[in-house]
Simulated scan of single mutants.
Amino acid sequence: MKVLLVEDEVKLGEYIKKGLTEAGFIVDHHLTGLDGYHALMTDEFSVVLMDVMLPDVSGFELVRNYRAAGNNTPVLFLTAKDDLSDRIKGIEIGGDDYLTKPFAFAELIVRIKSLLRRANQADYKSSVMHMADLKMDIAKRTVHRGDTAIKLTAKEFALLQFFLERQGEVLPRSVIASQVWDINFDSDTNVIDVAIRRLRIKIDDGFDIKLIHTVRGMGYKLDALDTSTDTSISISGDDLK
Rank of each mutant, 00 (worst) to 15 (best):
Y15Q: 08
Y15E: 08
K18S: 08
K18H: 11
G19K: 04
G19V: 10
L20T: 02
T21C: 09
A23F: 12
A23Q: 09
A23I: 03
F25R: 02
I26M: 10
H29Y: 05
L34Y: 12
L34D: 03
Y37N: 08
Y37R: 09
H38C: 13
A39M: 13
D43M: 12
F45L: 11
S46G: 11
V48R: 00
V48G: 00
M50F: 04
D51Y: 03
M53C: 09
L54V: 05
V57C: 06
V57S: 04
V57N: 02
V57W: 03
S58A: 14
G59F: 05
L62C: 11
L62R: 02
N65W: 10
R67F: 03
R67I: 11
R67L: 10
A68S: 12
G70Q: 09
N72D: 10
N72C: 13
T73D: 01
P74Y: 01
P74I: 05
P74N: 05
V75F: 08
V75W: 01
V75I: 15
V75N: 00
L78D: 00
T79I: 10
T79F: 01
D82M: 09
D83R: 15
R87Q: 14
G90T: 03
G90Y: 01
I91L: 15
E92A: 12
G94M: 06
G94T: 03
D97F: 09
Y98A: 04
Y98I: 01
L99S: 09
K101H: 05
K101C: 07
A104P: 06
F105A: 02
L108Q: 07
V110G: 04
V110Y: 11
V110A: 14
I112C: 00
S114P: 07
S114A: 08
L115G: 00
L115W: 01
R117Q: 06
N120R: 15
A122V: 02
D123L: 15
Y124P: 05
K125A: 15
S126N: 13
S127M: 11
S127K: 05
M129R: 11
H130Q: 07
M131G: 01
A132P: 00
L134S: 01
L134V: 05
M136I: 08
M136Y: 06
D137Q: 06
I138S: 07
K140Y: 02
R141M: 14
T142F: 02
V143I: 10
V143K: 02
H144T: 10
R145I: 06
D147C: 07
I150E: 04
L152P: 02
L152Y: 05
L152D: 05
A154N: 13
A154T: 13
